[in-house]
Design a protein around this nucleic acid. Structure first.
Lengths: 325, 325
DNA sequence: TCCAGTTGATTAAACGTTTTACCAACTGGA
DNA sequence: TCCAGTTGGTAAAACGTTTAATCAACTGGA
């Protein structure tokens, strides 16, 4: 409830002096600064963000637009974003684009109406939000080179591919969830690159893909690389039901290192995004844009990290399962 | 960029009239309202929330304090909260209390500094935030009867217990994660109530609890009820490793119906919170308090819903595994 | 002594909105 | 004709902050 005017009258000075003393901007004697600060903390003074926002035109609030708040990555992104925003005295307002592109632009508009100083957008699969009226940074899509920061999905895929290669697997099936997603296509492309020396690489998608797995294994595949941990869990469940065990009969990998990856048995080999660094870079670029500094030239891509656990092992059975049968 | 003054001068009227026309508060002729609204939409006018906030002392923003943003429930709570807040033209600012009580009060203070009109708090395990300087509603703890809304954890536990009872299991182990959590203790208590007619109910906690599972089963337990899905996944993995299969050898239940529950095999029997309704009630109470209406008397508790899947089955083997061995 | 420069503080405007108090012009009834 | 009541609108203050412009007092050098 205490305001700047209160402090000013208590001390018999003008409000401008108080403001200057607190912000350190104008010219105020050192001792006056002391007195002002002392009184301010006595009163428990908290500057009114509303007043400041009105005057300065900046709200000190950033918007976060997610394609779907139940996205398994959302918690980690939100957390990191919120801590690094905190460090810069910024708040984070969330908005859900509820899985469809139309809602996405509405969500952005709602944030804009609230006067956010900038927005972080994690776009819908397959959409690329155009330039906005406030500084914007896009996470996890490389569409607009200037203002995006994204994990190196292809690189992550390659790490997986190379791991599988190094474990001497030659017959591999790559399993994706939805080919509409640019991110997933990138991951798959990376896997292919890492598997360049494999003799047989097969690409499957979605629910039918899972059904097709057992036959593929029967036909000789010895490793399955998926584009998400959830998919990997599904696969493992399915395989267990079919009497195929991981990693003895087939190696299996996920993507993203979700919390349950370590609750599985065997614990899942996967690849992790450094969400902290992504958030860091995102906020960094955003603040830079907000403060009118020139954009950084290249889009930022953050390397992924291979997390080797126990769902992968070196090939130790004949390539073709038929021979066992 | 268009403001109320702009519209006023365009139309040759006073700003007060424009404000009245737009908010429908003062006395303005119907046709003037038309003209104002027309001009406003021509200009793409958006009221400045900052201006309004300064004048009215209300920011139109609610704060959400979570114990840990990576909490598996956070996404769903955030999503529902954000949609129902949207309906009331409110924004949601997030804050992370990073797993410790001290940060929790700091997080609350940060939100307060930002001028939120109210806060929704999902408290740290074992803490009960005291009364705040703004309207507050607490989710998932029944500590303060006046302003809390929480799932009926005990009721959910009872549902599980009754299911297990109806499946004719008599020897059950209840497995919890951390007894510090009031929520988990409630769940366990509910389970016990639902299992009243069982002959042997054992309670285990944490990592050692999991280790003790196989011996317990060897000693005759035929069902395991856990206080979280993640725990259930861990257990299932552990049991698989021990050569014990679900649900043939032992029935298993989770809690919360997290996304991966259906990716497991067998799909997990669990109990779901109606997060939508919880969010609804929470915002409802919060808005009521903000608008100065009297508090609703009783704390709101929302019933949980049993989700029966395939990790539970009726008892079909001798109670004591020893006899098999 | 005078003047330029510096220091420390003040005045007042501005940001965009809402709201109270007020005013002018009608209306209808006595 | 006069008055009370209603209708449609305006003027101005207020919310709390920042900042450009101004001013008074002091300093040191010529």
């Amino acid at each position: 409830m205490a305001n700047i005017k209160q402090i000013a009258s208590d001390l018999g000075v003008s409000v401008a002096t108080v403001s200057n003393a607190l912000t350190g901007k104008g010219r105020v004697s050192a001792q006056m600064v002391e007195r002002v600060k002392a009184r301010a903390s006595e009163l428990g003074y908290r500057p009114s963000l509303a007043g400041r926002a009105l005057r300065s035109g900046q709200s000190g609030i950033l918007g976060l637009v997610m394609p779907d708040l139940t996205n398994p990555l959302f918690p980690r992104i939100a957390q990191h974003l919120s801590t690094v925003a905190d460090d810069r005295q910024m708040g984070i307002l969330i908005a859900d684009s509820r899985g469809n592109p139309k809602e996405q632009t509405q969500a952005i508009n709602r944030l804009l109406d609230r006067g956010v100083d900038g927005v972080v957008i994690v776009p819908q699969k397959g959409t690329a939000p155009g330039p906005q009226s406030v500084p914007t940074v896009i996470i996890n899509t490389a569409s607009d080179p200037d203002n995006s920061v994204c994990a190196d999905h292809a690189g992550g895929g390659r790490l997986i591919g190379e791991l599988i290669t190094s474990l001497r697997h030659h017959r591999v099936v790559i399993l994706g969830d939805d080919p509409v997603s640019e991110v997933q296509r990138d991951r798959v492309a990376g896997m292919r690159a890492g598997l360049a020396s494999a003799t047989d690489v097969q690409e499957l998608w979605g629910k039918e893909g899972i059904e097709a797995l057992a036959p593929a294994i029967a036909a000789g595949a010895t490793a399955i690389t998926t584009t998400s941990d959830l998919l990997a869990l599904r696969v493992q469940s399915h395989l267990t039901r079919c009497g195929i065990s991981v990693p003895e009969d087939v190696s299996l990998t996920g993507f993203d290192d979700l919390p349950f990856a370590t609750a599985m048995h065997p614990m899942l080999t996967t690849v992790a995004q450094d969400v902290g660094q992504i958030a860091d870079l995102a906020i960094d670029r955003l603040m830079r844009a907000i403060q009118g500094q020139p954009d950084l030239p290249a889009p930022a891509t953050v390397p992924m990290r291979l997390v080797t656990r126990y769902s992968t092992s070196t090939l130790r059975r004949p390539t073709n399962l038929e021979t066992i049968k």
